[in-house]
């Protein structure tokens, strides 16, 4: 098995990231937006691991561990928010939540 070229691995990471971005922008359901964010985080982690593997350093994997920690915390909060939103305004449509834009006065 030949060593995997770094460029190609990074291309895969970039594609995954872009897909996540599309999902984040397209979907209006909060759950899907969270899923898309997970995809993007995973892609970034993949890029770290690729780099770490390229230079044979453990740092890439360490960074991936931090990313996964952050993702866990973020998902916990995000899903708690989803539950609250569902009970407060009975929809998961993110565009319905625009109260923070403020009033119309100058």
């Amino acid at each position: 098995m030949n060593p995997i070229p770094m460029e190609q691995s990074l291309m895969v990471a970039a594609m995954l990231f872009s897909l996540g971005l599309i999902g984040l922008l397209v979907r209006r359901n909060v759950i899907f937006m969270l899923i898309s964010i997970e995809i993007m985080l995973n892609a970034a982690g993949l890029a770290f691991v690729v780099a770490g593997s390229h230079w044979q350093a453990a740092d890439g994997q360490v960074m991936f561990l931090f990313i996964i920690t952050m993702a866990a915390a973020e998902v916990a909060i995000g899903l708690a928010l989803v539950l609250r939103l569902q009970s407060d305004l009975p929809t998961l449509d993110v565009d319905a939540m625009d109260q923070l834009k403020g009033g119309d006065d100058a």
Binding site: V12, Q61, F64
Partner: peptide, 11 residues
């Protein structure tokens, strides 16, 4: 699986 192939079994 990609990670495994990249030599990172732990992650």
């Amino acid at each position: 699986v990609l990670f495994l192939q990249l030599g990172a079994p732990f992650v």
